Structures are given as structure tokens and as C-alpha cells.
Simulated assay, not measured.
Amino acid sequence: MGPIEAALSTGYRAELHERLGSTNDEAMRRAREGDPGRLWIIARQQEQGRGRHGRNWVSPPGNLYASLLLVEPAPAGVAPQLGFVAGAALHRSVAGLIGPASAGLSLKWPNDLLLDGAKCAGILVEGVSWPGAGLRAVVIGMGVNLAHHPETALYPATDLAVRGFAVSVEDAAAALVRNMAAAIELWNRGAGFAAIRADWLARAGGVGGPVRVRLPGGERRGVFKGLAEDGSLLLDEGGVVAAIRAGDVFLGADGSAVGAGARSETHEGAGL
């Protein structure tokens, strides 16, 4: 079953394109044109891919680039939780594709997926608003490094092929479509976020260990204590626990056990 069939079986729609500028941009365009949502935009190649803070990244053929358009999915205050919904679904999807090697998979706050400490997938959540009407739609973009990864990146990166897994775009997209539908149903417009939060934490890396958070005003170091009820990172700075809503996170004593190369966005950001 391919992604289009998988989407239809879960009450969604899907389009598979050979090439697009950006799957997120295309989904946002559809939202502004009045698309009812529950639509997957999937591409084999992107020409204008972007990540958090407008960072560019290479989007060659062979990787998965997918964006889900949801129209009025929840009140604006809880819409950022969709990053964690997507993270849990992304972990389940890749774990199902690589089997026993999934023991090396972990989620990095707020929404990167690591394989043995290097990034193999990530998420970019963006909102579409109308003047005077507030949040109208949310676009959840996900990229999975199936066959390629950047050699030069902000953090170490990897892909599934270099680890010995031959995964097609179609199979990866179908798995993501199915798992995302289940996670959105569990989330239930925010009513089920406690269950999503617990699921995310069970798959997270670095909990209880040292972490460095890069913020606009400098860096903060401490111990990653988990997630607050709203999804903020809890940072224990010598007995004082702070809730961090946005930042670049570096796990480990040297702050290097993280990855990049797909998509990434902060919890508070995402244009919501």
C-alpha cells in the first residue's frame, strides 16, 4: 500500500510529486486557497527546502519530504503540541522500517529524530493565519533522510541507507501517513496531550543527562529533567528547574550528541 492508498484508508488525502519547491510552501498555498485540509503533500525532491530560522538544506531525490495540512486542528494555544504528535508518529514510523536497529532511535526536544546520536529526520510546524481571524491552518512538515544526508551541518547527520536500510519513499510515506493519523486521533485536539507527552518522553533521548540549550541571549547548561505539561523542556540548573520554550538543544556532556539535516523547529516557534 502506497501513501495515497494509506491516506485514503485513514480518512486523509495524499499527493505524490516528483519535484516541488517546498512541500510546506505548497501546503500553505493550498490552505490560503481554501483547501479543507487533511491533505498530505509529498515530494521526491525539493528545490527550496528550509528549516528553522529559514535555514536551507539540501533535498536530493531519495529522501522523504512530506507535509500535512490540517485546517483548524485545535485552538491556537495548543496547536504547537502538534510538533510532539508528529515526533511520536515519526519515531514509530522509522522504527517500523528498520526493525531491531530501532533501539538506536531517540527523539531530541523538541522535534528531531536521532539514530545513534545523529539526526535522520526532523519536523517543521508552521501556522497559516488570516488578519482578524487568527490561526486558520497548521502545516506539519517532516523530512526523513532515507538515502542521503548533509556532510556539513549544524549537527551530525546520518541516513538510513548508510546504516544498511534500503527504504523507498513510498514505504516511508505510507508508514508516516498511518502513524500520524493514529497519533492525531489520540491527541484529539489537545485533549489527549498527556498521552502524547508520555509517549514522546518514552522515546526521548538524554532525559536525566546533561544538556546545553542555545538561546538568542546565550547558552544555558543543566540536566534535562523531562517535559512540562505544555511541552517545554525542563532544565535543572543546579537545583533550580527552568522551563525552556524554545532553543537549539545539544545533548551530552560535550553538547554534541545531536543531529541535523532534515527539518527542525522550536516548540514555541513554528509561526503559530
Results as ranks from 00 to 15, higher is better:
117 G>L: 07
112 D>Y: 00
90 L>C: 01
88 A>E: 12
86 A>M: 15
70 L>R: 12
104 G>F: 05
85 V>P: 00
101 A>M: 10
86 A>R: 03
81 Q>M: 14
67 S>T: 15
78 V>E: 10
82 L>Y: 09
96 G>F: 04
126 E>S: 06
82 L>N: 09
89 A>L: 08
126 E>R: 13
111 N>H: 12
128 V>C: 14
102 S>Q: 05
115 L>F: 15
92 R>N: 07
105 L>C: 02
118 A>K: 15
107 L>G: 01
73 P>E: 10
75 P>F: 14
87 G>C: 10
65 Y>K: 12
103 A>N: 06
77 G>E: 06
105 L>E: 05
70 L>N: 11
67 S>I: 15
120 C>L: 14
108 K>E: 04
101 A>Y: 05
115 L>H: 07
91 H>Y: 12
105 L>G: 01
122 G>W: 04
93 S>E: 00
110 P>S: 15
119 K>V: 07
77 G>A: 11
113 L>S: 04
102 S>A: 15
77 G>H: 11
115 L>W: 07
68 L>R: 10
74 A>P: 00
105 L>D: 03
94 V>G: 01
116 D>E: 13
73 P>C: 08
120 C>I: 14
114 L>Y: 06
122 G>I: 05
92 R>E: 07
106 S>N: 03
102 S>N: 04
98 I>K: 09
